[in-house]
Amino acid sequence: MPELIQPNKNKPGQHPIIPTNETVELSESEIKQINDALHHVPFASGASIDALKIIQQHRGWVSDACLKALSDHMKVSTADLDAVATFYNLIFRQPVGKVVLHPCDGISCDLMGGKKIRKCLSKKLGIGNGQTTADDQFTLIPLPCLGACDKAPVMIASEKLFELMDENSVANILKDLSSKAGDKS
């Protein structure tokens, strides 16, 4: 898969906060987790999604070198792995920030002002959809319907659901997430 045109100007390597994943050797814990996943399926290709998630959990995103290392380990071709990786929105084939914000752009959230929330997020962070902030803290990827229409508008970030958002709460949420992101590093 050729590189997509990246709106994000951040190139891997310039910001050490995001792993570059240029050369990849699977760590012991990665291998252990992947092998566990492999034990549960009759064909290695069946563990592709799990293996990609494991890589992403350890390395933030899935680079070409990650795919190569995974392919060598799982004996599944890189083309087959990449086919799975590129199919799913939440397997990242480009570097993403510490926190990935998924504001909902489903119809219920939009009825309840979701559009305004997303615009507000963009403005506060100075980035558009699919982009990452210059300090590599945040990446903005809207998703349709997070299944919490009764609490619209909603957003998922750092495995947490933010409910009944309004423009005033956005700043606090970002501040909160930003300090947590700082903790993680």
Binding site: P2, S77, T78, A83, T86
Partner: peptide, 20 residues
């Protein structure tokens, strides 16, 4: 053949190799 596949989804769908 295992060096050719379909990538991505919807309008972005792409048929080719993992790399040139």
């Amino acid at each position: 053949g295992d060096d050719f596949n379909v990538f991505s989804s919807r309008n972005r769908i792409y048929f080719g190799r993992a790399e040139s």
